[in-house]
Design a protein around this nucleic acid. Structure first.
Lengths: 76, 76
DNA sequence: CTCCAATGTCATAAAAACTAGACATGATGT
DNA sequence: ACATCATGTCTAGTTTTTATGACATTGGAG
């Protein structure tokens, strides 16, 4: 969907560090995606599929809504 | 992604009816997607993007995790 | 019965997510 | 200096999501 910038933000990085310094590669394997996907996701370059989002949150033992956020502003 | 069946389930239909009989077409316009997307999503034929999932939940005034569910069984 | 709204299907095509591999850089360690 | 790990970039390709439009079915209302 992406006309302009992404309305989705996340705290993947914080969760990785909080999880004892889990690397992007480790997270990727746990989630079942490639390292590239983790990097792009973490940088907010695109919003992942709901399934990947759920598995990512689950990798941290956190609910999805504590890892991903919908920034609502303007036209909504 | 998507080898076997979908691990994502949802209660979109229940929320639609609970929201005073909101139609699929109305939901589609509120969310900003087409009617087809709502139908496929509601039937669980695929897991939507996180952004669409957030907007869908928001259309019901409910948190994402009350509309979409990650069914974890086997090889998680 | 006829009209219409709501749901659903099918096919085609564009856009976005995701994969795979090569390569660059900064930090850390030997 | 050399090796290694973690991060990040780039290009190119596959898969999935999403759009568009045409059409079938069901149920209710006039």
């Amino acid at each position: 969907m992406g006309k302009g910038r992404n309305r989705i933000s996340n705290r993947i990085r914080e969760h990785r560090f909080h999880a004892g310094g889990m690397t992007q590669a480790e997270l990727a394997e746990t989630v079942g995606v490639t390292r590239q996907t983790v990097i792009a996701m973490e940088q907010g370059r695109y919003s992942p599929s709901l399934e990947v989002a759920f598995r990512t949150a689950r990798a941290f033992g956190a609910p999805l809504t504590e890892v991903f956020f919908y920034d609502e502003d303007e036209n909504g």
